[in-house]
């Protein structure tokens, strides 16, 4: 549908675009981390692209990513990063953009390795990403550099860890308050 966006992106930035793909009608572009802001600025300001609307930010934790081939189904077509600076990436941060005037959509992705969870914030470009990036920071611990107000949004400050990571147990609670007769210091 908007394959021409991907083509234009490749033509303009060349090596900075690691891979592109169209799947189920969604356009995805995997870009290099240090070129993210340049690409995003161009996407927003170029009249042929005109991605004025931010849609969402999220992150994918690839810790347990072992795709299974379902019976009677083609195998995975999801593009995988071979490596980032020689290491296997653990997280993929996704920004979904939409153009209101051009009616096309694009998902930008950046891969991060576990010990270096830093990526530029796109909040200065689209104010709508403000809370979305805070949410991703809260849930996955990705540090968005240049974000005006990066702190927890859903959870409380006393919470330790990032719950949507695959290695955080689902039922590990960190209570703030309990009844005294349940705690046992009655």
């Amino acid at each position: 549908m908007s394959q021409k966006v991907l083509d234009a992106l490749r033509a303009k930035f060349g090596d900075a675009v690691v891979a592109t793909e169209s799947q189920h009608g969604d356009e995805v572009a995997l870009v290099k981390r240090d070129k993210l802001v340049a690409i995003a600025t161009w996407l927003r300001d170029d009249p042929a692209m005109a991605f004025e609307v931010p849609v969402f930010v999220t992150c994918i934790d690839l810790l347990d990513w072992r795709p299974v081939k379902a019976p009677g189904q083609p195998s995975s077509t999801r593009p995988a990063w071979d490596n980032v600076d020689g290491k296997a990436p653990r997280f993929e941060v996704c920004w979904q953009l939409r153009s209101f005037s051009r009616r096309h959509r694009l998902r930008l992705k950046v891969a991060l390795v576990e010990n270096d969870l830093k990526v530029a914030s796109l909040t200065p470009l689209w104010s709508g990403f403000d809370w979305q990036e805070r949410e991703t920071f809260d849930m996955y611990g990705v540090e968005f550099q240049g974000h005006p107000d990066l702190r927890r949004i859903y959870l409380y400050d006393e919470f330790v860890g990032h719950p949507l990571r695959k290695d955080y147990p689902k039922e590990k609670r960190q209570p703030l308050v309990r009844r005294s007769d349940l705690v046992g210091d009655h």
Binding site: S76, T77, R78
Partner: peptide, 9 residues
């Protein structure tokens, strides 16, 4: 329901 690997929005 077994869903083939991939991603979609």
């Amino acid at each position: 329901v077994r869903v083939p690997a991939g991603e979609a929005y």
